[in-house]
């Protein structure tokens, strides 16, 4: 079955998968992008994502309103971001280590309070049909997108535009590129980074809400499987460009769909490696595209991860 029909099936599945799976990657990477642009790295977004997923599901179940769940997930994420931002602003504290600690803390809290919500079925987010023009039910299905996906795209554009064209964007970029320069401009570096981390956490929390309330659409402890961490890698190969983050998120989603898609046309051999495609792909792209000889284009100069 390795013929053209099979190829089309796989291609279609990867495109559909990209649309389905990319949203959490997009939100987390945009949040991380904002935080990193301000010169700080937050590895804890995995914990934020998981806690966001749990809290969104819990709130949706308790109140019957999934959108309220999304908002609460965002606020919870913002609080996690704020804790991270607060601790990192203390002298001598390593932001990568704080991120790992926050990941542990967030995941732990989510599992702790999430026990009661594994069983119940919470109302889920609705979808918007963008495939009205097609007669093919599969195409229509693939284009049933969640509003958050569209919000994510808009957010990517707004961030991309905002970094270039607004004073706020300039302040964030300057803070990330050179703290002394920001000080010279009269900017409070710590406040900017604190806010950037908190807002970044908000985005990651919303990404978690997408996981539990839309796709795959339930709360379990294995829900994230490292997506929040992968999103951090994704920001690096998106070169801190919000629009590229969107592209990278789609690519990640597509790569994640590769394994199941190949098996659906009967190719199961080596499925472990197809399932690992997102990780292999990220590593390969990083090896091919990063050079130690020159500094990364777009990399914030203050970022510990690129130093």
């Amino acid at each position: 079955m390795g013929d053209d029909a099979g190829f089309t099936t796989v291609l279609f599945a990867m495109i559909a998968g990209a649309i389905r799976v990319s949203t959490p990657f997009l939100f987390v990477s945009l949040g991380e992008c904002l935080t990193e642009k301000s010169g700080r790295i937050n590895l804890g977004l995995e914990g934020t994502l998981v806690f966001g997923a749990m809290s969104a599901y819990a709130i949706s179940y308790q109140t019957g309103s999934p959108w309220l769940g999304v908002v609460v997930a965002g606020i919870a994420g913002m609080m996690f971001g704020a804790i991270h931002g607060f601790i990192c602003k203390l002298p001598k504290v390593n932001d990568i280590a704080v991120g790992i600690a926050m990941m542990l803390f967030g995941t732990g809290l989510a599992f702790f309070f999430g026990k009661a919500y594994i069983q119940p079925a919470a109302p889920r987010l609705p979808s918007i049909s963008l495939g009205w023009w097609s007669d093919d039910p599969q195409v229509r299905q693939a284009l049933d997108v969640n509003p958050l996906f569209l919000v994510g795209i808009v957010l990517a554009i707004v961030l991309w535009w905002g970094f270039r064209n607004t004073r706020l964007g300039l302040i964030v970029r300057t803070t990330g590129d050179s703290a002394p320069a920001a000080l010279a401009l009269g900017v409070n570096v710590n406040v900017v980074r604190f806010l950037a981390t908190a807002v970044g956490g908000f985005f990651a929390g919303v990404g978690g809400a997408f996981l539990s309330l839309y796709y795959p659409g339930s709360w379990t402890e294995g829900l994230s499987s490292g997506q929040g961490l992968m999103a951090v890698a994704l920001v690096i190969f998106a070169r801190w460009n919000p629009l590229a983050c969107f592209g990278a998120a789609l690519l990640f989603g597509a790569a994640g769909a590769l394994g199941p898609a190949l098996q659906s046309i009967g190719i199961s051999r080596g499925y472990h490696f197809f399932n690992a495609a997102p990780y292999l792909m990220t590593l390969a792209i990083m090896i091919l595209s990063i050079s130690p000889k020159r500094s990364l284009k777009g990399a914030p100069g203050e970022l510990s991860i690129t130093k």
């Binding site: 099936t9 279609f12 599945a13 559909a16 998968g17 389905r20 799976v21 599969q138 299905q141 996981l211 796709y215 795959p216 659409g217 339930s218 379990t220 294995g222 829900l223 499987s225 997506q227 994640g256 769909a257 394994g259 199941p260 898609a261 098996q263 659906s264 399932n275």
Partner: peptide, 13 residues
């Protein structure tokens, strides 16, 4: 969960 959902969708597709 995510891969299970992807697998289900791939089979349906």
């Amino acid at each position: 969960p995510v891969r299970e959902a992807e697998a289900a969708n791939a089979l349906i597709d």
